[in-house]
Amino acid sequence: MAGNPFPLSKAELLKAYRTMRTIREFEERLHVDFGRGDIPGFVHLYAGEEAAAAGIMIHLGDGDRIASTHRGHGHCIAKGVDVGEMMLEIYGKKGGSCNGKGGSMHIADLSKGMMGANGILGAGAPLVCGAALAAKYRKKGEVAISFVGDGASNQGTFLESLNLAAVWNLPAIFVVENNGYAESTSRDYGVAVDSYVDRAAGFGLPGITVDGTDFFAVYEAAGEIIRRAREGGGPSLLECKMVRFHGHFEGDAQTYRGPGELDDIRANHDCLKKFAAQVTAAGVISADELAPIDREALAVVEDAVARAKAAPLPTVADLTTDVYVSY
């Protein structure tokens, strides 16, 4: 036996797999429940993109901040937000992460360093500059990470933030989750400069492109970028090329996809399958050790749904609370 070839311990590998599997089960369940009409509002699913969230967040502690996107469930789970509270929130119930006032697009938990999913594309990048500025003042080596899709990378807020982070040498990291689509519009159409590393270079920032469906590629690249930021090396950009298993939002018929595209990405670009194949082929973790995690993740999600369905709805008393700290 040659031992563990990966730069993570077996326990860390199992944790990463559990994170990714929990996200997958969470999202696939929402897909079903939304289709049944159980969930109000807009829901954007992260399924297929799990390796990016897991490969980045495994480097972070609660003191490190992230700002997420409208497609934020995966970031929340990987950052340690309670899955049960998230499900309550998505169902619009009392006791949810935001007490039923935020919903899928606005889940936040500042105690976990999760500054919120965000319904405004590109809005998280300036906030992350602020979080990174606060970290710089605190001098504890904390970092802040802004997630942005390939589409929202066209927002002025994002580009201005690259500049501000560079000018102030902030411990800020900009992750472009490039799933090839801005809503229904191909990235190839909507982004005039075709490489996000080129965009970073325009602001004098280093950037890396990695296969975002390969946990280990993301893990190593993110590790270096985060270490650099912690040690005062300033901001960087990480482009994760990834795939989106579902539509832009739930209910999207996805007629813009090419023939066979979805079958292909599920068959050949599934980050969970890749991860399982890598760790089992290396003989570090057996399929028998992964199976219970699959069952537990499913059970966690099923339990969360059951509790969410049974939980009380907010009432008129909740309508006008928590607008201000004091008024």
Binding site: V193, S195, D198, P206, G207, V210, A221
Partner: peptide
């Protein structure tokens, strides 16, 4: 190749990135 020179050496060293243009 549009994607060469985008790897981790951009960050761990100061390797150049030749832009698409």
């Amino acid at each position: 190749n549009p994607v060469s020179a985008r790897d981790i050496r951009r960050v761990v060293a100061n390797a150049s990135n030749l832009q698409i243009a």
